[in-house]
Design a protein around this nucleic acid. Sequence first.
DNA 1: AACAACCACAACCGCTTCACA
DNA 2: TTGTGAAGCGGTTGTGGTTGT
Length: 246
Amino acid sequence: MERTEREVLKPQLKKGLWKPEEDLILKKYVETHGEGNWATVSERSGLMRGGKSCRLRWKNYLRPNIKHGMMSEAEEDLIIRMHKLLGNRWSLIAGRLPGRTDNEVKNYWNTHLNKRCPQGKRKKDDSNTTTSTNKKVRRSPHSRPICSASPKNTAGGSNERKEEGSRVTNPWLEETKSFDHDAEYPLSPANYTTFFYDYEPFIPLLDSFALCEALGCCSGEETSQADCMQPLMAGPTLSVQESHLN
DNA sequence: AACAACCACAACCGCTTCACA
DNA sequence: TTGTGAAGCGGTTGTGGTTGT
């Protein structure tokens, strides 16, 4: 078996599942030195793991207050509604679920909830979707997410940041202006299987109460939008809604 | 019992964005 | 203003357990 260039360059890095003793080392290291500087963790802690791997392991598994196990019905319901609203923005959704990580939410969606959305389920032979064979190919910004009317981001990148960004134009919206194939759904080119917005800042344009409605958090008795959203604002993020409410 | 198929989740990968020199 | 490393993100793959034949 030929070794890849990466393996030659970093032959010492271990991959695969973490062992309990490795967890212990990482946990002790972070407790002593704090989070951050992940690139140096391997050499300073003695772990034969890459910084990325250490960071992920800490973030998704070892960090205090991480909740493991079954999702409650409330959590599940919130994921569904948030996903409907935000699309595959797992970190944002996870931010609403104390103790849950983006990876966990993402996995839960893909393995449990996605099944309930058959029309959006990816097919292996669907040329519009990303498969193992086209993984390296940069995804078109117009690629559809599964089963959602969502502000899908383009491949990679942190999406919250984009919302705060100064980008004003959106190639997707610009391009749709010239679409003339479907008057009823001007934002939904015919070859896209589901309707969604590909423009992050669309969210602030949402009426707050519409947002509440989508999330089902309004009882009608709240005195303000902030009160209404309060139960969903437990986490540290969701800057979109928060900023919109302020 | 042995094997295959399926499922759930952990981990990896490639990319973008940010912070800072 | 630009370059670079670190961090964060979502998509995808790998692995181990479970179920069916």
